[in-house]
Nucleic acid binder design. Structure first.
Lengths: 173, 173
DNA sequence: GATAATATAATGACCATTCTATCTAAAGGT
DNA sequence: ACCTTTAGATAGAATGGTCATTATATTATC
């Protein structure tokens, strides 16, 4: 993969998450990535495609984080706790909510590729949880707790929120 | 209060929630509210002030909803369940996340009045819960569950999410 | 006659996207 | 080593649109 392309994706992911998708212009992205405008349009056909690439990149990183901590042949409680701890590690450095939901909110049209991608991403998360021993209700329950921790960390102390999340998972699984 | 002013606030709240703050221009708001541009600037000094007024209006409606269902001298479990049910009623018609967090995400500068208002709003929610018998940990816990239900309802069936929320509250309080 | 609301247009800034033309650098063949 | 081809990257400007905000001047309404 081209270095310029990866630079664009990395800076796009950072800037869009920090300031929002409509607030950040392409000029800002290419300036911080040290890439010419035409180079960007050489790699991506539009701003929306760049956003999609940034989301894809983020999705891989997040799912890798979760994948690493789940072990086969482990009871539900242990896996749930490991996943919650991994998620806590994630939100410690990502206190501005879920980038995927934010993308869906800024591109609410059901025709939008971005909107569709976000829905697929969340379905993937549920599917991943089901592949790791959880039944449907447990998967939804854990997803609800993780999303709640993500949102609450936007306004409350993230360490306190994390402790509460882990406490909840211990009680419930 | 002026009818035109209230029309502006109502349509602003609806449009900003549906499509996002930066995506919706003032032209769209005043057209749908049937108000002239200068009338809008007569009532509000800027777009950000209109947004603040819309958030204030929404906050009052949401807190009224919660206020109505909590009764004094009731045990924690009953109050927690009533609040969760009230919140479920809310998200049934508001499946695009928390408008306050979305505002904070689109106006991330800590100098922004909008950002400050959202933080104050969430502090108010916690404070409200504490005034209704909940200790600090219970308030944080309930807030986490409510935020989780709000987020998850953006991508999963809201009735299913609601059932799970109520189930969780029954287990935990 | 005062107050509120209107329509219209101007301002200046920013936006995504496209076009043009130049430049660099590596690759391949002789 | 030298030349040529090719692809990728560059700068800069143009297009056409939208945006928030301000100014001006006119119309209702009470």
């Amino acid at each position: 993969m081209s270095k310029k392309r990866q630079d664009l994706i990395n800076h796009a992911e950072r800037l869009f998450y920090e300031y929002g998708f409509h607030s950040v212009g392409l000029k800002r992205v290419i300036d911080e990535a040290n890439v010419a405008l035409m180079t960007m349009y050489n790699h991506f056909n539009s701003k929306e495609e760049l956003i999609l690439a940034a989301l894809k990149c983020r999705e891989e990183r997040y799912f890798s984080l979760l994948q690493e901590v789940v072990k086969q042949n482990q009871d539900s409680k242990t896996n749930a706790l490991s996943l919650a701890e991994a998620h806590v590690d994630w939100i410690r450095t990502h206190k501005k909510g879920c980038m995927f939901l934010r993308a869906k909110e800024e591109y609410p049209s059901e025709e939008s590729d971005i909107n569709r991608y976000v829905i697929a991403h969340k379905k993937s998360l549920i599917a991943f949880l089901k592949k790791v021993n959880f039944n449907h209700q447990e998967a939804m329950r854990l997803a609800l707790l993780l999303e709640g921790a993500t949102s609450l960390s936007e306004v409350e102390n993230v360490e306190e929120v994390s402790k509460e999340l882990l406490c909840l998972v211990r009680h419930l699984f």
